[in-house]
């Protein structure tokens, strides 16, 4: 019996170890090592901090990094504000007859590729786009305006593409909530605001944390939406990484940028988990 047990362990452990070591651990060590290497004047590979120094000295890199982080946080907060009423409506307000249908309808667009969704917004918002055409032909506006390629359209696009990852955990958190908690508070004379901040928000906190972590990470690592919907002057940090890798072919510098992005996202996720006293496993599932 004992040997049987160990054999099972071996069979299950081997592929999992291979997967995690070869595709996750080793590549990220390699990323760290590459970021600490450079070429000296003779063109030989040497260990150096130059790539990181470069990041801190050149203002543009710094600026993009901080901007990306702040915008990703903004996207997370906005996504929460937009989707919370929807999650609340579906779970608590609308008649249960419709809530299943509304949920399915809510999930539908997110099965479609992000690229298609961003493309949809592009043909809606651009100067020759559908919204401009409707506004001009109805006489509300004299000439079309460019609504795409600015920070607002980019933020909207990011919120749009990441809403699902906020709304699903919110719905499952609120679904588990007993309505009588709200009823009791109401009967005891609590105002809606008090009920919201003292009962609903604390109850939904685990859902809010998991949603925020995923949304933040996806916004931070997004490449498509900032590239296609953002302005020419508003770089996203992933675009810097792409430029170093594909355009300048400076892989050591790109690796340093990649490692900084990884560090940033890990720190903020860790911080979010600590703040809400949750574990990664619980937050993800």
């Amino acid at each position: 019996m004992k040997t049987h047990f160990r054999l099972g362990l071996f069979i299950f452990l081997t592929p999992v170890l291979l997967w995690l070591l070869l595709l996750i651990v080793v590549p990220h060590l390699e990323l760290l090592m590459m970021s600490l290497q450079g070429k000296d004047d003779m063109g030989k590979a040497v260990w150096t901090f130059a790539n990181y120094r470069h990041f801190f000295v050149e203002k543009i890199y710094w600026y993009t990094f901080v901007r990306t982080a702040l915008y990703a946080i903004t996207v997370t907060v906005l996504t929460f504000c937009v989707t919370f009423p929807v999650a609340f409506y579906i779970t608590k307000v609308v008649s249960p007859k419709f809530s299943g249908f509304l949920t399915i309808l809510l999930l539908m667009p997110f099965w479609v590729s992000e690229l298609v969704r961003v493309y949809g917004w592009m043909i809606l918002l651009r100067e020759s786009g559908v919204i401009n055409h409707l506004l001009v032909s109805s006489g509300l506006m004299d000439s079309p305006v460019e609504m795409l390629y600015n920070d607002i359209s980019m933020l909207m696009g990011l919120v749009y593409t990441s809403m699902l990852f906020m709304v699903v955990p919110l719905i499952s958190a609120l679904e588990g909530m007993d309505d009588s908690l709200i009823e009791a508070a109401h009967d005891l004379g609590a105002s809606p605001l008090t009920i919201f901040f003292r009962i609903i928000i604390p109850y939904a906190a685990p859902g809010i944390t998991s949603g925020s972590i995923v949304v933040f990470m996806l916004a931070l690592g997004n490449y498509l939406t900032p590239k296609l919907m953002g302005g020419k002057n508003s770089l996203w940090f992933t675009e810097q990484i792409y430029n170093e890798f594909i355009a300048s072919f400076n892989w050591n510098q790109g690796a340093a940028f990649g490692f900084l992005l990884l560090a940033l996202s890990s720190v903020i996720i860790w911080f979010g988990l600590k703040l809400s006293r949750q574990e990664l496993g619980r937050a993800l599932s």
Binding site: L17, L20, V26, L31, G221, S265, L280, G281
Partner: peptide
């Protein structure tokens, strides 16, 4: 190991891409 197995979901996809590219290269 369980913790390690969960991390791929919180590593930005771009980073997974470049680290694998570097290693393969």
């Amino acid at each position: 190991l369980y913790f390690l197995a969960l991390t791929p979901l919180v590593i930005p996809g771009v980073i997974l891409g470049i680290s694998l590219l570097l290693t393969a290269n």
